[in-house]
Design a protein around this nucleic acid. Structure first.
Lengths: 259, 259
DNA sequence: CCAAAAGTGTTCCCGGTACACCCATGG
DNA sequence: CCATGGGTGTACCGGGAACACTTTTGG
């Protein structure tokens, strides 16, 4: 259940663009004194990109706050307490802003904060960002200074938070395609239309035909039909399904399980 | 060329397993004093997983060093200097250990180091890990304390470095499948067998049939036949190809381009 | 002429795509 | 009986997997 470190069986990234160097000689370091790098103190903070899907509006939401001093919206964040792991800090920030029962949490990236760090100063700032996915319907806000924002709406961001959000969004899109994080955030029982809508909100409408989506997932066999039905006014009642973790295991190491 | 931050168009991860919480209420924070977290000082270090492919032996290598004090092999690493970005520090470490002209560099993950941090202590340790891919043939070692290791051989690792290596290996495997990092590390002109061997070393033999690999890549059209041939003793001369970045652009956002 | 290395082609089959169509319920 | 939402079926196409085959060189 709880994992402090990423597990080895996990699958790989196709974001995280790095640095390429071709043909130019990488210079040797100026001198051996580099081996004894002067000690620098870092203030480490956590920034959280908290996502949620509003099934009624059928849209993807991010949780943002207005910081007292600066203008523009900012990600919920905080420093790391003594004796508190990075993940624990991320978790704490979630629990401080919303009252949540179901969530998925994952480290995103560590950003330097060169703007705040003076070159000559010995103090440095480092922001470790996480992204979280929570169930909107069951996550009332705990703090008055934060609010849900539709992701595709134009938002005035503070500092480089726009970038972190974009990065988290990419990660979410990709994650959702091969990983069953949807079921961390959906009710235990759900209809296939619920599931389809969830994917539509994140990947955009028409990421796949509904009927194909349906038959593909059912063929894979990790969705158990509970036999129960859900009646929503007119129309045929919808079957309620449950996610079967055991049955999903074989697909753990496979790309593009969903979509 | 040089990117300090991951770009937004990048594609997504399927490693980075996070934390799931289902059904259990996430408790509210003990008190409001959490909003004013006591300041903790971090020592930030960089650990590098440097990979390389030995085309003669046809195997994947990692660069490891023996640290003076502890037993077991360790990743090359160092603290971050004042006024030095995380990536610059990673780059410096590469240049200190090997003399390299071509490389790919990317941030991996940030690890807490709970073992070294005392619970009551105000000092904390944080390790930001990077992975690098370098061209073996053109990367003579600069330091005597490091050596190449065949990745699949049993290695006695120091602390949690085994974990970081595994993590980096996963990332490499996935990265290689959709991203053209192979061409950062291959010569400008290469035969398709060279390319195939590169993938074999990383993904394991028989990740795909050679002839299918060949026809698929050629059909995509971002490999330009230079017309030049390479003669290696007996046998038909091999055509030399070049990677065409422009022509690759359309596939930037596509999974499983290679393999 | 043979072996070695490189390159081409062919067949089969599965899985995605795009639809059209059938079913159950409320009004 | 019709609108509405849910579920099923089918016909086509492309791309991957496996394998056989041809081409060009050196000895």
């Amino acid at each position: 259940m709880s994992k402090q470190r990423p597990s080895v069986q996990d699958k790989g990234v196709w974001e995280n663009r790095g640095w390429e160097n071709k043909g130019q000689e990488v210079p040797a370091s100026p001198g051996q004194e580099c081996l004894r790098v002067p000690r620098v103190e870092f203030s480490v903070g956590i920034d959280l990109v908290i996502f949620s899907v509003d099934h009624d509006q059928n849209c993807l939401l991010v949780l943002l706050g207005r910081s007292p001093q600066a203008r523009g919206w900012a990600l919920p964040g905080s420093g790391v307490g003594p004796g508190e792991s990075l993940q624990a800090a991320a978790y704490r920030i979630v629990s401080e802003t919303i009252q949540v029962q179901n969530l998925y949490l994952e480290q995103l990236y560590s950003f330097d904060e060169p703007l705040r760090s003076q070159p000559s100063e010995s103090r440095r700032y480092l922001s470790v960002s996480y992204f979280a996915l929570v169930r909107y319907e069951e996550a009332p806000l705990r703090s008055e200074s934060v609010a849900w924002h539709v992701l595709n709406s134009p938002i005035q961001f503070q500092a480089h938070h726009q970038e972190i959000v974009q990065y988290g969004y990419q990660r979410l899109r990709n994650k959702v395609a091969y990983s069953p994080i949807a079921f961390d955030v959906l009710p235990v029982q759900f209809t296939l239309h619920d599931l389809y809508q969830f994917y539509c909100a994140i990947l955009g409408d028409g990421f796949a035909d509904y009927s194909n989506f349906r038959s593909k997932l059912l063929k894979l066999g990790f969705l158990r039909d509970t036999g129960e039905k859900l009646i929503r006014g007119a129309g045929r009642p919808a079957s309620l399904f449950q996610f079967d973790r055991e049955a999903f295991a074989p697909f753990q190491d496979q790309p593009l399980v969903f979509v």
